[in-house]
Design a protein around this nucleic acid. Structure first.
Lengths: 108, 108
DNA sequence: TATACATAAAACCAAATGGTGTCATATCAA
DNA sequence: TTGATATGACACCATTTGGTTTTATGTATA
């Protein structure tokens, strides 16, 4: 949980607890305590996961009284989306293969 | 590298070497030896990565003489795509943000 | 048949990961 | 001010991860 971005977005979403946390924060901002209530693991473990997400810039936090409120910051997921979409041509359907082919023809 | 699917797709793509391998295999099927030539790590390490990818059903393999040929099997990436696309509404454009805001107002 | 080639299998290692529990500190509220 | 609440900071632990080297096995081919 250093200052240098030790965790990238792919690593951050590799853990199912962290994916659940992102889903939670997509609905509402939440404090550490509120987040903890949705999981069976210890608060310490929750905080560690949040640090990984924070490191990957998938969440931001602000202090409010004695609470620390986390917010979803989903922009980094665009990176994943783009990477995955490269592979779509190989599975989706013939139409998207064709679409992809046509688009790349126009671009270059 | 057990029979039970120990590695899921999110874990499999968490490593950049493995992501590169998938990109490689997207272009052409390749043997372990051919894949190794694109990386600076040992062949043993390559095989371990391929086992993780195989475990996550992102690649398949077939024997051909003394070679083992790996193929991309990208279907599992659809899971990732779907998961990520849930978050698109939060970053894509103002309209969907507004839509979301209005909807949440109605909910509470 | 020898030999070179491609992969398999095993033992080992350091560091990272995901978890725990305990104690300290800051803040709100009675 | 005192107590409850929310978080921060540590120290600790077992397992997994990503890597290594060494040794064995199966397969083409000169």
């Amino acid at each position: 949980m250093s200052a240098a971005p030790k965790h990238d977005v792919y690593q951050a979403i590799a853990d199912s607890s962290r994916r659940e946390m992102l889903m939670l924060l997509a609905k509402n901002d939440a404090s550490i305590k509120e987040i903890s209530e949705h999981f069976s693991i210890s608060r310490t473990a929750i905080v560690k996961h949040l640090n990984v997400l924070s490191d990957a810039k998938l969440v931001s936090d602000r202090k409010a009284g004695r609470s620390k409120i986390y917010s979803l910051q989903p922009e980094q997921l665009a990176e994943v989306k783009e990477w995955v979409s490269y592979f779509e041509q190989f599975w989706d359907n013939k139409i998207s293969m064709l679409k992809n082919l046509v688009e790349s023809d126009f671009e270059e």
